[in-house]
């Protein structure tokens, strides 16, 4: 099947099998940030934006993205760069394998709610599993970023 979608701002047309999932399609199209951590739609590693909403790319048949806009971390490097240093300052990236999904969903959170409480951060990111960090360092990092932003230190 032939599909056309906008990937990170670039219009691409591709021929795909009817059962190709967006996750595999994206990895084949140079988006190595998109990771697979489970086969059960539950880990959040493959989070991308479909028309600006964070979704699990493992659960989207790519044909469904035909005519839509898909954004991966490759397309949001600058927006990510604004806050990831604060995560790094906590050491909370650890192995890094879950980071792209976590960073994507954090971007989604901050777009939707620019001033979240710690509990709102935890609730919004609940679908992003991480086995290394114990999560609290990630929350501290986001908090430090928000504080820095409020205090005009960015």
């Amino acid at each position: 099947m032939e599909i056309t979608l906008t990937l990170n701002g670039n219009k691409i047309t591709a021929s795909v099998a009817p059962d190709t999932v967006l996750l595999d399609f994206l990895r084949e199209h140079g988006c190595a940030s998109v990771k697979c951590g489970c086969e059960t739609s539950g880990c959040g590693l493959c989070t991308v934006f479909l028309d600006d909403k964070p979704v699990l790319s493992c659960s989207v048949p790519v044909v469904r993205a035909d005519g839509h806009k898909v954004t991966t971390l490759e397309g949001l490097q600058e927006e990510a760069a604004e806050f990831i240093g604060f995560i790094a300052d906590q050491g909370a990236e650890q192995c890094g394998f879950c980071n792209p999904g976590f960073v994507m969903n954090t971007i989604a959170l901050l777009r939707e709610n620019p001033d979240p409480t710690d509990d709102e951060i935890r609730a919004y990111l609940a679908g992003n599993l991480c086995r290394c960090s114990g999560y609290e360092g990630q929350t501290r990092g986001i908090r430090a970023y928000l504080n820095a932003k409020k205090e005009g230190r960015l």
Binding site: A32, S33, V34, T72, L73, E74, Q77, A80, A81, I84, G85, I87, A88, D89, G91, E93, C95, G96, N99, P100, V103
Partner: peptide
């Protein structure tokens, strides 16, 4: 910071 931190966080 971990030496690889920023690259990992940028995916």
């Amino acid at each position: 910071r971990k030496k690889d931190a920023m690259q990992l966080l940028l995916g």
